[in-house]
Design a protein around this nucleic acid. Structure first.
Lengths: 340, 340
DNA sequence: GCGCTTTAATAACGCGCGTTACTTCAGCAT
DNA sequence: ATGCTGAAGTAACGCGCGTTATTAAAGCGC
């Protein structure tokens, strides 16, 4: 209830109580190698710490040791499942290392982004994680050069900064492969905006899987759905209204919301999933994929893993170690449900 | 690219460059009232700051000023829409005040929670926000008493800590009222676990709205759906299979997922929403409510507002001001879509 | 007894900054 | 010239801690 506005207990208090010098306390607190502390002394000190309820002051420690322990994490938005997963991954990895995350949302506003970056630099972050909600190229404010930076789910055009990206090609490959394995040979691909990396990579994987199966990719089976349920619905209608011999028996959709649109088109025509038409989505938006009927088989974007890996790389960079790989890709796991 | 491992520029560097003392620099940086700084001097200093790219060291400043600028935020999980909204609200309010949020997730594990709290206290947070994903009673580790604490979406049994809660009663009232206004008089209520505050409060609002409309609440119309889509489906079946004269023409569901289950039961029976049966949900889970057919009218839990208000209260407490209200309730807005 | 090493511990400095108390000097009335 | 006032600026201390250099005592071989 009552706020303790009286001065907090410091290391000197502990030292006095234990009958030693402050230096000695610091030594036991930091397990200083080379410092010979008899067990009895150590015990007295730990006891004093306990009795006084002493807590080291992280800020003072950072100042003296010239090591803040902070990493910065800038995302576009905090809300939304993707950013949250990145945060979760990065957090757990960081806290385990006694490092902390200063999180900021740019809200897509360059001014806010710059302000956030300023604050982070003032807090002397030892590294910066910059994450986007969709895989694309970005360019960072100059100030970001002042500190080791790792890009998550994005990359810089110049290719100077290390980055962590989902493996879109393998994602497209795995989706297609799964459908091939189920016996489908005419597989429609309702893709995202064809100009973005996700669309390009997945199409590459899609075509590779087909060729490996001895099938020549038919470009007319690939239609951009422009990332909306309605767009995908239209695209699916187009594909399903072809003459039977020409009609795909499976649809690979650029994301789960698009799969929703495809579901509607399929059901409208009295076709059944997966018996008549199989569907694979992308993104694994739990609330969609797990509640569609039938449940949607889809690929997950590995946001949490990317967050974890980001902190890994940052930790290495902050420690002055070189990076083994400058550009890391992380696999998109296939989540089997009931739509194939 | 290259990490700048050379020592960063400090205030002394700025002072030297500007030909003044460090104290003077500090004065202009902090707009010290009572310090007479001629414009010319101020200009020189600002110029030096700019040329050198000086950034104040937030940690050192905190140490000297004995004011960390940190608030702690402990949630159960970071993933999931609710926590993210609280974070968003708290963040925006905090950053605007040049305060920062040290965010941690307990993952429901008391050990992690205690560890997080320890770290926060070591970082000398000036206040603590403790948020849960669902409205309930909690008990905090003793250590939380060392710093002003505000509970978000929860309360302590002893009623000692200030808390911010959604106004469940008004939520239940508004939902029911909306249905009454649409002409319904027999309104089924598929409630959550009847022992939790949300269920109790909403039922109170539900009954009050009915009474105000001159309708005596019929207990047989209130059924717990146990917070699952399946449970709600069963409950809805039970209500809809009554003799016509006895059957509700509207269903108020404890959450959006439960509304999904109710939708299924309604559609199975060839009834139409909202013509034959109207539905109101709760929680406004975007991915469900906005994509159900028809779109679901529901009440939103005001997580973002609660986060904002939490920081407000913390700021007041940290400044030593008394709180006007110990227990704040925040309204749940009704989001009109197409299911009523 | 004497040097030497090891053990146990500490004084003192600095991290970057906020702040208080103090100094210096110009201007001005007496 | 003296005294006073306000303007402009600074020296010096302390925040809580890590760390280095140094000291004091104890153990040991001879």
């Amino acid at each position: 209830m009552a706020t303790n506005k009286t001065q907090r207990v410091t290391m000197s208090d502990v030292a006095r109580r234990a009958g030693v010098s402050r230096t000695t306390v610091s030594f036991v607190l930091n397990d200083k190698p080379g410092a010979a502390i008899p067990d009895e002394t150590r015990r007295r000190i730990l006891e004093a710490i306990d009795e006084l309820g002493y807590r080291p002051n992280a800020g003072a420690r950072a100042l003296a040791a010239n090591r803040s322990g902070w990493f910065g994490l800038i995302t576009e938005i905090v809300t939304g499942p993707f950013a949250a997963e990145v945060i979760t991954g990065a957090q757990s990895r960081a806290w385990g290392d006694r490092r902390f995350l200063l999180i900021a949302a740019s809200e897509g506003d360059p001014a806010q982004e710059a302000a956030a970056l300023d604050q982070m630099l003032e807090h002397r972050v030892e590294g910066l994680l910059y994450a986007t909600t969709w895989h694309r190229a970005v360019s960072l404010p100059k100030a970001a050069r002042e500190v080791p930076t790792v890009l998550v789910n994005c990359y810089d055009a110049a290719g100077e900064l290390p980055c962590i990206l989902p493996d879109e090609v393998s994602g497209g490959y795995k989706a297609t492969r799964r459908l091939l394995d189920a016996g489908h040979t005419r597989i429609g691909f309702i893709n995202l905006d064809p100009a973005i990396p996700a669309a390009i990579g997945r199409r590459e994987g899609y075509e590779r899987a087909l060729r490996e199966a001895g099938i020549t990719p038919d470009p007319s089976l690939v239609i951009p759905g422009w990332a909306t349920a309605d767009g995908a619905y239209t695209a699916a209608c187009e594909l399903l209204d072809r003459p039977a011999a020409d009609r795909p028996t499976a649809l690979f959709c650029g994301n789960d919301r698009m799969a929703m649109g495809a579901y509607d088109a399929i059901k409208e025509r009295g076709l059944r999933i997966p018996h008549d038409v199989a569907v694979v989505g992308f993104d694994n938006q739990e609330l969609i994929a797990a509640y569609l009927r039938p449940k949607l088989t889809t690929l997950a974007l590995p946001f949490e893993a990317m967050g974890t890996k980001g902190v890994d790389m940052l930790a290495a960079l902050a420690a002055g170690q070189p990076l083994d790989t400058h550009r890391v890709t992380i696999d998109c796991p296939l989540l089997e449900r009931s739509s194939v």
